[in-house]
Each structure stands twice: as C-alpha cells, then as structure tokens.
Design a protein around this nucleic acid. Structure first.
Length: 343
RNA sequence: CCGCGCUUAGCUCAGCCUGGCAGAGCAGCCGACUGUAGAUCGGCUUGUCCCCCGUUCAAAUCGGGGAGUGCGGACCA
C-alpha cells in the first residue's frame, strides 16, 4: 500500500488531525496509535464509529493499542464504583473486540492494556506528581472540561484525570493519540506538557462526535438519543423512526452520520452497496455505491427521510447484531458490570 | 471537634416562617398536522417530600433523634 493511501485511510472520516504534517512524517515507519476508553456506562453506536476506524489503522499498517482506562472511570466523579471496575473492564474488552470484528478487522491484532498495568509504576507516579506541581488548576480544568463531569465542587480526581491521560500516551509509547473530538482539550494539554517532562508530544487524531437522534448532541443519559449495542431490532427501528431528520438537511442529522461514519465504511470493506427499497410512487428502489452519492440525493430531496430511515434501520441493526449476539452468549458480562440494571 | 446550609417529579427548583387535597418550568408520553422526525397546536403522566420517633383532628411544613452532602471555624504536634 502506498503512503498516500495509508494517509488517506488513517485520516479519513476524522474531525481533525493535529498536525497533518506530523502525521505524514510518522508514516515513514509504522507508528503506534492508541485510544483509551474509561469503562463507565454501556457502550453505544457512538463508540462503534470511533472503533470502526481501528480497522482503517490496522489496514494502514499501524500498531493499535486500546487502553481500558479503569482508574479514569473511577477518578471521574466515581462514574464507576471502584468494585465494578474489573467487571466493566471485561465488558468493554468484549464489546470492543466485537466491534472491531464487526468492522471486518481481526480483534487479535489489537493490543489491550489495562490502565492499572501502567499507571501505578513508581516512574509514572513520580511523573504525575511532578506534572501536578507545574500545572495550574485552571489549566487542567480547561483541558478536561469536555470530558470530565463538571460539578460545583469538583474532586481532585477529575483534576488529575487529564494529567494521567497525558502520561498514558508516554507510558504506552504511542505516537498518535486517537479519540473523539471531545478529547481535544486533554491532548492539547498533553502536547504542551509532555515535552516539558522529557516525552514526545503526540500527534492527535480526532473522530467527530455524532449528532443525537433526537437533535443536538448525542447524550448517553438520554434514552433514544443514540442506539445501544444491546438494542434489539425493534428498538433500532423505533429509534431510527423517531429520529430528527429534516428533509434535505444534512447537518445535525444523526441518521446520515451513522451511515457516513459506520455503515458505508463497513459496506465498502465488504464491497457491497447501500440498497433502499422504495415504493414506485416515490421513485422505486435505489442503491448507492458511496455515501457522497446518497447525501447528494438527500440534499436535493430526491431521497425522502422516511425511505432513508427504513433502510438505515435495517443496515444499522445488521451492523450491531454481531455484538448483540456476543452478549446474548455471555449475559454474565453485562450482569456483573451493571448489576443494578440487569438484576 | 464545633457551627451553619442543603436534601421535594427524570432535571432545576418553589412550597416550610403562619400545619389543611404536593406544585411550577423543563424533560417525557399520547394525539392532530406533515409521506419521517422536528417545529407548532391539543391533551396526559410522573413522587419513599432523605429516614425514624413524637405533637396534632390533620405534618413536606412544628419538636426530637439520625443519615447523606456541602461550606465555614477551630486544631495544626
């Protein structure tokens, strides 16, 4: 694979690359890219779109590491009780492996690392304290404002969070930090502070955050705002049917975004088109080879939201089915990770 | 250790002084209108009033005890 194609694969469907020049020069070799997930709430389709890109990274020859940031999950306002960190970590691993597989890649090619494996060494602790000494509270609050739960009386844990995440980059020896664009503040801090402590500033790659199905940003706390990986076919249909989706409007349109960032890349991997069945009255069946063509038809109102939704629901349901099935075989993983819900 | 504040619907809170059917806004749900959704209009739902004991015909409200949470003071070898 030539270098240009590798760059295209790595950078496609991202919200921002910091910086493009730095990323390009990294492709002299096979760099290491990492993404961290704090095992808190159940995983959803938003996670799936960021994880799907891991398939792009693998295909481009990058070394891919996934950090299960268990301590982060507890440091951030105790989103996960300490006693549930192991169970939720196990659940996250299984879900992530399932998503990588569903994206058409080999989960075995991904290296999983547990936060506590790297975050409790004497060296890491010393670096953390030294960073704490020269980082202001205002700076770390700003860095974590989009990620760490905000409250009137924040705990120290939430303030340390961005510093730990920065040191994770160093401890994992990652060249590239990958994550949702909400992570931007933290990694900008990393780029600032890591070099002051003898480490390289990471190149950053940010995935877009998808719009919620009810309009506005997707919110994990709002049911119906996003598709859960454990949603059954009926729930997927209902949520897509109820989605905010103005005719001809492509901005803030969760349905289109799911297709662009998740469904079309998966179909492309398989070499299949996106097929919409439609009453003759409205133009009859139609298929799209790429997302741009579909978006163009939607924009010109050639393609009506109702026809789009029906097809989108089918494809999305099919995409999450493998993950759903994985957990149907392992109900214990969910039950132990979220005992209050699955009792 | 001492003092003060707070705890009421999914969320933000009012009500407490002066006891009398538990409320508002937002959210949510259901209809109407749209070949989807939203917007708009119409309608509807939602409660361990933190817990226990007491006073009272009657307690979210008053008294006592407790819990959780937050703030302040003191202590600072």
């Amino acid at each position: 694979m030539d270098r240009e194609e590798r760059y295209r694969l790595v950078a496609r469907n991202t919200a921002e690359v910091v910086t493009e020049e730095e990323l390009d020069s990294l492709l002299d070799r096979d760099p290491t890219i990492y993404i961290g997930y704090a095992p808190t709430g159940e995983m959803h389709i938003g996670h799936f779109t960021t994880i799907r890109k891991l398939a792009d990274f693998l295909q481009a020859g990058l070394e891919v590491k996934v950090l299960i940031a268990d301590l982060h999950a507890h440091l951030d306002d105790e989103k996960s009780p300490f006693d549930l960190l192991d169970a939720r970590s196990a659940y996250y691993r299984e879900a992530i492996a399932g998503m990588v597989g569903a994206a058409g890649a080999e989960p075995g090619e991904i290296e999983f690392i547990q936060g506590r494996e790297i975050e409790l060494s004497a060296e890491y602790s010393l670096d953390l304290l030294r960073m704490a000494a020269d980082t202001t509270i205002a700076r770390t609050r700003r860095a974590g404002s989009e990620v760490v739960r905000q409250s009137e009386n924040p705990t120290l844990g939430g303030l340390l969070y961005p510093l730990l995440q920065s040191l994770d980059v160093a401890a994992l020896e990652a060249d590239i930090a990958y994550g949702g664009i909400d992570q931007r503040g933290i990694y900008m801090l990393s780029r600032e502070v890591l070099p002051e402590h003898g480490y390289n500033a990471p190149v950053c790659l940010f995935a877009p955050l998808l719009s919620g199905l009810t309009g506005g940003k997707m919110s994990a706390s709002e049911a119906g705002s996003g598709i859960d990986l454990t949603d059954d076919s009926e729930a997927v249909e209902e949520k897509i049917a109820g989605a905010y989706c103005p005719q001809g409007e492509v901005t803030n349109n969760g349905v289109l975004e799911y297709l662009q960032y998740l469904i079309f890349p998966i179909l492309e991997e398989r070499g299949e088109p996106f097929a919409i069945s439609r009453p003759e009255e409205y133009g009859g069946d139609v298929t799209y080879e790429d997302y741009a063509a579909l978006e163009a038809d939607f924009r010109t109102e050639e393609l009506h939201p109702q026809d789009l939704k029906a097809a989108a629901a089918t494809y999305i349901d099919e995409a999450i089915a493998p993950i759903r099935n994985r957990f149907a075989d392992r109900p214990d993983l969910l039950a132990e990770a979220y005992p209050e819900k699955y009792d």
